[in-house]
Design a protein around this nucleic acid. Structure first.
Lengths: 235, 235
DNA sequence: GTCTATACTTGGATAGAC
DNA sequence: GTCTATCCAAGTATAGAC
């Protein structure tokens, strides 16, 4: 067997028929993964996130990432097989981390106004930490790398699903909810989220984006006043 | 007046003391532009647009663009000084072309429902021709190249201005218009537009985006019914 | 103005020592 | 698992022939 690179690679990336990687960081049964290895991978993934955030997709080279990780360029290929796979692992990390946060936050939400409040806080977090930038860079960068598009698309799916759940939960039972399909609205909300992220980064337009949430809050209040006190109370 | 492309080019290369958009070899005052030169530049700009669209920012190299133009790699540097400058020229071309179209289309619009109709047609055009992809790629790519962000931002400005005018025109006089500042709404609309473009490209999600316009049409109709026949009739 | 040739740099990826 | 060294491909940019 000589190198467990193949094994490790299997475990790590779960590559099947396709050319591109499937899962993210650990996966599989983790018996054989040394803590040292895990630590390095972690460092590389974190550095990849930071690099995507700061230097964008085009600037996310193995060398740039490794340097930021205080590590070695060759390790990128040892642990992830290719740069793109590392970037996908980074996207996985961001995605699961954020969705967990979103779920926890929305769990406590009942009314549309509350939903907007929570969304505002979350958006501010995302913006400051640059999480969604990673997503945006991967989507935009996908054009440059054959096969990457499908991988990224698969990782965005859960974002739609989450948005749909959140919308369904807070406005699903209302008259508006029966006119507008939650799925379509969710799609639009995710699109808006991505777009705001892009524009915010382009200049010091952070405040401009946040202003929109203020307006949304007003509209949510208006909406609640019209359609009744709490949408959850009419099962 | 022949081509105002030359004028555009002048502007592009005359950007002040910054590091960006320094002039290349030629291009002084443009009295001396030969038709041959203009033709080549045109070819390169068009190829740059196409390359940004298909291969993204990271794939838009001088070689790739020149090959698509059936031209020579060295000409990129001769005519534009650098690859980024050519990409900015491409963005300029797309931007002015599209805004002209938008203006013409919105000029005939009165009611919100009409605005949505026009926007739908325009969006479908943009999507199929990939115009906005160019914009998206440049915004996302700006992270990788120091100084590019400001240049791109300057070129997006007119898009906000246009959106604001369009919104002001069709809902400005209504009760909703006095609650929601047209500028903020415009910012959100542009963001949504960019986000939908991104997502549409990620998969065959074209229809999903277009569905949103259908819903918007319904809402516009509802809005008109509530706030009166034609917003323009109450000056 | 356009082409070929070339200098120089960066990046992906592998080999092999430790 | 990690590091150094290295190969090779691709990219930017310039020089000089046509």
């Amino acid at each position: 067997m000589a190198f467990d690179l193949s094994v490790c690679f299997e475990q790590l990336l779960n590559v099947e028929g396709g050319e591109m990687a499937k899962t993210g960081t650990s996966s599989r049964l983790v018996d054989t993964v040394s803590p040292r290895s895990a630590g390095t991978r972690r460092l590389l993934v974190d550095a990849a996130i930071e690099t995507l955030r700061v230097d964008g997709y085009a600037g996310a080279s193995a060398r740039a990432i490794a340097e930021r990780a205080g590590s070695n360029q060759a390790l990128v290929f040892y642990h992830f097989g290719s740069v793109v796979n590392l970037l996908l692992a980074a996207l996985d990390a961001v995605s699961s981390d954020r969705l967990e946060q979103y779920d926890a936050a929305v769990d406590k939400v009942g009314s549309p106004a509350e939903l907007v409040d929570v969304a505002t806080a979350i958006f501010r977090q995302d913006l400051d930490a640059g999480y969604v930038t990673v997503l945006v860079e991967m989507i935009a960068g996908a054009s440059s790398t054959p096969g990457l598009g499908a991988e990224v698309a698969a990782r965005i799916g859960p974002w739609f699903a989450f948005a749909e759940r959140a919308i369904e939960k807070s406005v699903g039972g209302s008259p508006l909810g029966s006119v507008l399909p939650a799925g379509d609205v969710a799609y639009g909300v995710v699109a808006l989220y991505l777009g705001l992220e892009m524009l915010s980064h382009l200049e010091g337009e952070r405040d401009r984006s946040l202003a929109l949430f203020t307006h949304a809050k007003q509209l949510a209040g208006l909406f609640e006043a019209i359609s009744g006190p709490t949408p959850k109370e009419t099962p």
